[in-house]
Design a protein around this nucleic acid. Structure first.
Length: 428
RNA sequence: GGAGAGAUGGCUGAGUGGUCGAAAGCACCGGAUUCGAAAUCCGGCGUACGGGCAACCGUACCGGGGGUUCGAAUCCCCCUCUCUCCGCCA
């Protein structure tokens, strides 16, 4: 959500941001509406001031038994009533129009974000680790999992339909191990507080992170009106909604491992096989709440925390700086981390870390009191996956597969697997 | 599912028609006192919008919307949310 004052003072930057995202400029319309609002407000306030003054005089006149004066003043106030009532209606209407306009506009990309149309214009930031070499043709994760008899799409579809999976035995445990490992690293080494948040949220929470009103079709909704979270970003970021924090309490860092639910409307035909794109998946989310001047540093820190998980798992990856056309709605700047998948012979997204500036906090009314100076300011919010657990499982299977179909367990996960060193080859 | 209570400033909490943007306490800020600190005392301390170079002025805001009234935190209606008790359930 934009601040209309900021748009007034930075109309050019605002329109450039929209243009870079492939949208039409909107500053002229927004400012015109705001001009209208100010004009209405001026008239309304004059009328209200006169009414307030007259009402006081009426009180005085009545106290002095000056009935004539009181009657005259009352007539005047009666006239003002219509002006005030119309003014209030007009103001509400214009406010609503402005709100609707602004709520549908995406955040302004930072200056160092490459301008581009789609993922082909993303910039490579770094490549870390070497893709493993195989002396056989590496399989895709679903081939491996199904051969092990521990990954069952058929049964899942009987229960829930397409885009669901049943994991069993060592694979079910591997998913749990991955989530635990990630949480342990983030809580003990990266300063994040573990949270077990609600998975069903209200309109206002989803609006706060800007999943609503524009992206309702991507979400599942219960018949009572709750939204199933598509990411714990919603729950964790809204932890600070409608509050005023002290700057000395910042930054706040939250992490959670939760199921995520996505309708995947509009992605029909994409990644139809396997666990890459599911209606339900586990993800460890990181959310940081800080001040505007610390946002960029926090963004780098968060991205490093996500990358560190991959490094420890011995998985090769590359980090991309998303271009303007590929960035999320609320983001000012986003890094995607892509893990190497031998079975697909490709890098695939496994984490996305974004800094959102004040875009979400304005929607949530989340503010802080600066240690120096006065007033309150909006917080800066960041979110990132650290990591998508389901896709990490895929990466482990494909990168650690052996010729016989067995899977070596990465060292760091073994304590979480009861010491298990590998998932045995399928019986032949 | 049934019954009831409530929503006031950063927090707690008074306030049932004008003198209320709102008592008091806490928290916070400044000062006095002290070698320093605690305690104590004095003073300050809401948000948003509009106008003004500024000091400052105006308007709105006591959950949201509507109504009554010359005038509403206060009375009436609707909505939203929160809590309590009973029942049911993990």
């Amino acid at each position: 959500m934009f601040d209309i004052k900021w748009i007034r003072e930075n109309a050019e930057a605002f329109d450039r941001g929209l243009k870079n995202r492939g949208m039409d400029p909107a500053s002229a319309q927004a400012i015109a509406l705001d001009d209208e609002r100010r004009a209405i407000l001026g008239k309304l306030q004059d009328a209200q001031a006169r009414r307030n003054a007259a009402s006081k005089e009426i009180g005085k006149a009545k106290a002095q038994k000056d009935e004539d004066t009181a009657q005259a003043l009352m007539a005047e106030v009666a006239d003002l009533k219509g002006v005030i009532s119309t003014g209030e209606d007009d103001e509400r209407r214009v406010d609503q129009t402005i709100e609707t306009l602004l709520a549908a506009l995406p955040n302004t990309p930072l200056d160092d974000v490459p301008v581009g149309a789609d993922e082909n214009d993303n910039a490579l930031v770094r490549t870390v680790g070497e893709p493993p070499k195989f002396d056989f043709a590496p399989k895709e994760h679903f081939e491996l999992g199904e051969a092990l008899g521990l990954m069952d799409f058929e049964t899942a579809s009987k229960i829930s339909g397409a885009r669901f999976v049943v994991l069993k035995g060592a694979l079910a445990r591997l998913e749990r191990a991955l989530g635990q490992f990630m949480l342990d690293v983030h809580t003990t080494e990266n300063g994040y507080t573990e949270v077990n948040p609600p998975l069903l949220v209200r309109d206002q929470a989803a609006y706060g992170t800007a999943n609503l009103p524009k992206f309702a079709e991507d979400l599942f909704q219960t018949k009572e009106g709750f939204w199933l979270i598509p990411t714990a970003e919603i729950s964790l970021t809204n932890l600070v909604r409608e509050s005023i924090l002290d700057e000395s309490d910042l930054p706040k860092r939250f992490t959670a491992c939760t199921p995520c639910f996505r309708s995947e409307a509009g992605s029909a035909g994409r990644d139809v096989r396997g666990m890459i794109r599911q209606h339900q998946f586990a993800k460890v989310e990181m959310v940081s709440i800080t001040t505007a001047d610390k946002g960029i540093a926090e963004h780098e820190r968060m991205t490093a925390a996500a990358e560190d998980i991959l490094t420890r798992l011995g998985l090769a990856f590359r980090t991309m700086l998303l271009c303007t056309g590929d960035m999320g709605f609320a983001s000012q700047k986003t890094y995607d981390i892509e893990v190497w998948l031998p079975g697909q012979d490709a890098y695939r997204e496994i984490s996305s870390c974004s800094v959102c500036g004040e875009f979400q906090s304005r929607r949530m009314s989340a503010r802080y009191r600066p240690s120096e100076g006065k007033g309150v300011h909006h917080l800066t919010t960041l979110n990132g996956s650290g990591l998508a657990v389901g896709r990490t499982l895929i990466a482990v299977l494909e990168n650690y597969q052996q010729a016989d179909g067995s899977i070596v367990i990465p060292e760091v996960l073994r304590p979480y697997m009861g010491g298990l060193e590998q998932i045995e080859a399928p019986a032949t």
